[in-house]
Design a protein around this nucleic acid. Sequence first.
DNA 1: AATATTAATCGTAATATTGCAATGAACAAA
DNA 2: TTTGTTCATTGCAATATTACGATTAATATT
Lengths: 109, 109
Amino acid sequence: MGVSKTEMFTDSQNEIALFAKAFGHPARVAILQYLFKLNACVCGDLVSEIGLAQPTISQHLKELKHLGLIKGNVEGTSVCYCIDTDNWTKMKKLISGFLDQDISKENCC
Amino acid sequence: MGVSKTEMFTDSQNEIALFAKAFGHPARVAILQYLFKLNACVCGDLVSEIGLAQPTISQHLKELKHLGLIKGNVEGTSVCYCIDTDNWTKMKKLISGFLDQDISKENCC
DNA sequence: AATATTAATCGTAATATTGCAATGAACAAA
DNA sequence: TTTGTTCATTGCAATATTACGATTAATATT
């Protein structure tokens, strides 16, 4: 059906999945890495840096912004994007908690 | 188009995205958490634990197995799944490296 | 052998995602 | 005011994902 049955899962599970989905596309991974690299804001040179069309980049930015991972400031005709460090830290804790589950005991397979 | 232009991104970016996509659905998050919780293997009680139909769970398991995050052992009529700890550790390092990018310097937004 | 149990696979429907051309909105510069 | 620049939005096509009923394959049990 293409639709996830979110009501059968916990809030935590759904939230982990939502953030993970944000990283589930290489373009968004690249955008975030580029924003980290420049540290300061970035405008539309993401379009030339990454090879996708402007509407496509804009759409990915919108998703990341909606999740709160980035912020955008209008500056004249250009828009300056950067990482939302507070939310990034929160997200990082959530995902890390999931990744750091205990795997010390022996498995049977 | 629904198809990602993976050729424009680095191997690392594509790999991060692939693993992240695995966690991008709450059912797979739930499956992995359950496998961690029981530590030992699990068979098809994932179906009753999580509320989805058997073919749906089977499909999610297939994806996780294909990525190498879990292993499956046939035991009689049932199949025993568990975390592939080696690959989990590798994946964790990759994702952690992405999440732990430096955010110490001040942003402009 | 006949039946039951468990899980994979197939086929299909519904929805989501990705990507871009075309267009629009906001502002700057001339 | 006109023109150019930058980015968002709209609309659409192609593909991917999610879910499940029906079936199949493999093994256990009787």
